[in-house]
Nucleic acid binder design. Sequence first.
DNA 1: CCATGTACCTGAAGGC
DNA 2: TGCCTTCAGGTACATG
Length: 269
Amino acid sequence: MPELPEVETVASELRVLLLGKEIVGIEIIWPKSYELRSKRIIHKELIQNISRKGKYLILHLSHSFLIIHLRMTGQLLYVNGEDSCNADHVRVKIEFSDKSALHFRDVRKFGRIIQVDDPQQILKKVGIDALDPDFTVDIFNRILKSKKMGIKAFLLTQNYISGIGNIYADESLFRTGIHPSTLTHKIPALKIGLLYENIRRVLHEALQNMGSTISDYRDSFGNSGQNQNFLMVYRRKGEPCFLCQKPITKKTIAGRGTHFCTNCQKIYR
DNA sequence: CCATGTACCTGAAGGC
DNA sequence: TGCCTTCAGGTACATG
């Protein structure tokens, strides 16, 4: 499932592939995958910039914006004019003047492409990006102290800090030795600093490894990531903890499958 | 404010 | 083999 490192991998590839291209048509195969919240019909628009906030990808066009969220199984596949494309589950095709195209493939149909006049329509509720240089440990500390919720639930909520999903939440908490049920305001100051560092490190490393492919994630060339080979707890239920050898526990916390080591991760009360 | 549950979806995996 | 059930999870939304 694409989280910050996976979306950023796609974004940086698309910057190389798509900047300056002219959109000449959008074919909507599954209507719910494409939501029009702009009065403007795309006729001919240039892709002027590509950015990202949290798990949202933003294509800046001449007169509007395409906000894209891949949710669980979404993929943005680049198709060259000469390629034959017969992939299943393609929901939207964005076609360019040079006969290349970007195909939005999404098995489970949760993902969305939303066309808006102002990106803030979508992004105003999204918290600061976890790899934004302006996201400091002081900010992290202040937000954590102001909440009284489980740390796992906090990390998954995108309104405060954005980009962290189920995989990297579990990985960051394991590396910091914090139990996922610990309440945000009960985490000791030292651990807050370490958690901040580990979140940034885990995301950076995943980005260097082109993201984690658990089942569906692929980059714009259809390639898998490599970071799944470096995960320490996610999907390792019953396997020995890399620190103490005790079997990794999996349990539903904050409504999500949560992996942790009961021996290495302490709950602070 | 925060927690919980449901809906949206399909395919893979597990049980018998 | 085959059928049925469960599970996977990001976000929106409703409810307590």
